[in-house]
């Protein structure tokens, strides 16, 4: 069932900071390999949209929020290593 769910991600990055770029690369890579054709990634640059960061309570960058499927999850960091994220998304067990 979960194979057909669409994963909605929102990634808050701080301009072209190294860890933000790493996080984006890691996320894109993961989606390509594990969630082909069933993912959406929205990238928010806190420098360009600081009010949004303030409203959303984003204080650490990069921050990845998984909006769907529920529950909403929040991961902070460059997503390196990938393991905690896979566990959180429930992908590690399902594809093992």
């Amino acid at each position: 069932m979960s194979q057909h769910l669409i994963f909605n991600f929102r990634l808050y990055v701080a301009g072209d900071a190294l860890n933000s770029a790493q996080a984006l690369a890691n996320l894109t890579n993961l989606c390509k390999t594990r969630l082909p054709d069933r993912h959406q990634i929205e990238v928010v640059d806190v420098y360009l949209e600081p009010k949004r960061a303030l409203a959303d309570g984003i204080f650490m960058t990069p921050t990845l929020i998984k909006l769907t499927p529920t529950p909403t999850r929040k991961i902070v960091g460059s997503l390196n290593p990938m393991q905690p994220m896979l566990l959180l998304l429930g992908l590690e067990t399902s594809t093992a």
């Binding site: 301009g15 806190v46 984003i58 650490m60 960058t61 999850r73 991961i75 902070v76 960091g77």
Partner: peptide, 11 residues
């Protein structure tokens, strides 16, 4: 909150 890897206070 799950922390994975490096982050900064840019936000």
């Amino acid at each position: 909150l799950v922390q994975s890897g490096d982050f900064d206070l840019g936000g």
